[in-house]
């Protein structure tokens, strides 16, 4: 009887564990770039974005400011030392959720509109943002793209001599 109860308990434990286990898609080398709308020379790419997307809708992005590569070395120096202060604030993080995850069917090929809401921490300032993007499913492989503006003063970045805002572009292919 005891043995029976024990194995029953074990079955229940294993079962509930499997039922609540979430599938997490991730990448260490996603891509985020930005460009200043009024000066196309001011642009940079970061290819070392860590991102995780869980099937319950949790979504995160982390990147290192020093990982942004500019065409011009002098601009890269100014960006790091004067505007983003990357020694003091080396990382930018976003933690949020896909608010309409019910409409994103990860088991079925297609392109799904995603409304993402969460906190973006940049230059030591955290701000709640909402971004519209697209999640694409192709044969079990996921990718996420989005394009949105970042206003410098929202994050207390004083780059007024260069630009008031940049357009950020996310392009992450998950494993």
């Amino acid at each position: 009887m005891m043995k029976y109860l024990l194995s029953l308990a074990l079955v229940i434990v294993v079962f509930t564990h499997t039922a609540t286990a979430q599938k997490v898609y991730g990448t260490r080398n996603g891509k985020i770039s930005f460009i200043a709308p009024n000066d196309e020379d001011v642009k940079a790419i970061n290819n070392e974005v860590t991102s995780r997307l869980s099937d319950n809708g949790t979504l995160s992005f982390s990147l290192l400011i020093k990982g942004f590569k500019f065409g011009y070395a002098e601009m890269q120096d100014h960006f790091n030392n004067e505007y983003l202060m990357s020694n003091q604030f080396p990382r930018a993080d976003f933690k949020g959720t896909v608010t309409n995850m019910k409409e994103v069917v990860l088991s079925k090929n297609g392109s799904y509109k995603a409304v993402v809401k969460g906190d973006l921490t940049l230059h030591g300032v955290t701000k709640n943002i909402t971004v519209n993007g697209t999640i694409t499913v192709k044969d079990g492989k996921l990718s996420a793209i989005a394009k949105f503006p970042i206003v410098m003063k929202d994050f207390k970045i004083d780059a007024s001599s260069v630009t008031e805002k940049v357009m950020a572009e996310i392009n992450c292919i998950y494993q």
């Binding site: 860590t50 290192l64 990982g67 080396p90 990382r91």
Partner: peptide
């Protein structure tokens, strides 16, 4: 070295 992302790399 560009830095550290906790729990990742």
């Amino acid at each position: 070295c560009t830095g550290y992302i906790p729990d990742a790399n």
